[in-house]
């Protein structure tokens, strides 16, 4: 592996892939294979889902609207890099401290990880940690996400990371559960390998949260001759949605035809997914065991390659 200790970023070149992690924007800024760029902007902390009819009916979205802001904005508190077991704090990474690294053997490290610590723009604040790791023997980019909540915040609509891919996907395959699944609506799903052509279009007449896939082993997205996959690290797998629109675009539209054209893909990997509910649409909240308590700790890990 080849490590670049840039003034504002950590670069890693491994095999045919190049990764750039930006200190100033707070995350994975570039993932390039050959001529294909897979990152449009550094990943967002995913805290908002487009209001479902049931969320609106029970007042959830109003109560939890602070998370809409938290989904759009966050603070990078600090970051650090560990290369071959050597910890480099943020002030050891930026200019001019990085001058001393120009001849460092760490530039050929066989393992490197960068850990970002974020705080949410809520009061009180919650913490989020995202660690990106690469190693000679590893097959891809491992991502470890952790949300550490605090008392005093309203329930979470969702909790995870959202990647914005700069292209529409031609198709995608996943190994996991059939159909659209949520924690309170996955009983009827079959396990298997599934294929979807093009983007998943919102199946609801008024745009809202949709397209979640629980307990997935592997997801592969295809664009022309290229592909990008996400693999599970733990037995629980990971939860994802891959949508042609952001939750904010969905939130703003009254009908599907009002949504922006499919230019980019929004891949959300959720550490915790709120159920959809169903008792009624005018007061009953999602069952308590399927709500996301903002005081909890939620983790997810996966490998991108």
């Amino acid at each position: 592996m080849e490590i670049v200790f840039g003034d504002l970023s950590l670069g890693v070149r491994k095999g045919g892939a190049e990764y750039i992690f930006a200190y100033n924007t707070g995350g994975l800024e570039s993932l390039r294979k050959g001529r294909r760029e897979f990152v449009f902007r550094r990943p967002d902390l995913a805290f908002w889902r487009a209001t479902t009819d049931n969320d609106r009916g029970c007042g959830f979205s109003a109560r939890s609207s602070v998370w809409m802001g938290a989904d759009r904005f966050f603070k990078v508190e600090n970051y650090s890099v560990t290369a071959d077991g050597t910890l480099l704090r943020w002030d050891e990474l930026i200019a001019p401290a990085n001058n001393s690294l120009i001849d460092s053997p760490l530039r050929k490290a066989s393992s490197v990880s960068i850990r970002f610590a974020y705080s949410t723009v809520t009061k009180p604040e919650a913490e989020v940690f995202v660690t990106y790791s690469l190693s000679e023997e590893g097959s891809g980019l491992r991502v470890d996400y952790e949300y550490r909540g605090t008392e005093g915040l309203p329930g979470l609509p969702v909790c995870g990371l959202r990647f914005t891919l700069p292209f529409p996907v031609d198709s995608f395959d996943w190994e996991g559960l059939s159909g659209e699944t949520y924690p309170d609506r996955m009983w009827g799903a079959q396990e298997g390998v599934f294929h979807h052509e093009g983007a998943e279009i919102c199946p609801y007449v008024m745009p809202q949260e949709y397209g979640m896939h629980m307990r997935t082993r592997r997801l592969t997205m295809h664009v022309r001759k290229d592909s990008l996959s996400v693999s599970a690290v733990t037995d629980e797998g990971f939860n994802f949605s891959l949508l042609p629109n952001s939750p904010h675009e969905l939130e703003n539209a009254w009908h599907n035809i009002e949504l922006p054209a499919y230019r980019r893909s929004y891949l959300t990997i959720a550490a915790a997914v709120r159920g959809v509910g169903g008792i009624d649409s005018w007061g009953s909240d999602v069952g308590e065991r399927w709500q996301i308590d903002a005081a909890g700790t939620y983790r997810t890990s996966f490998v991108i390659e």
Partner: peptide, 15 residues
């Protein structure tokens, strides 16, 4: 009438 299937709904049906 139950399981009001408005939008993304029908959660908790198994109960």
């Amino acid at each position: 009438e139950y399981m009001h299937c408005m939008g993304n709904s029908l959660g908790g049906f198994k109960d």
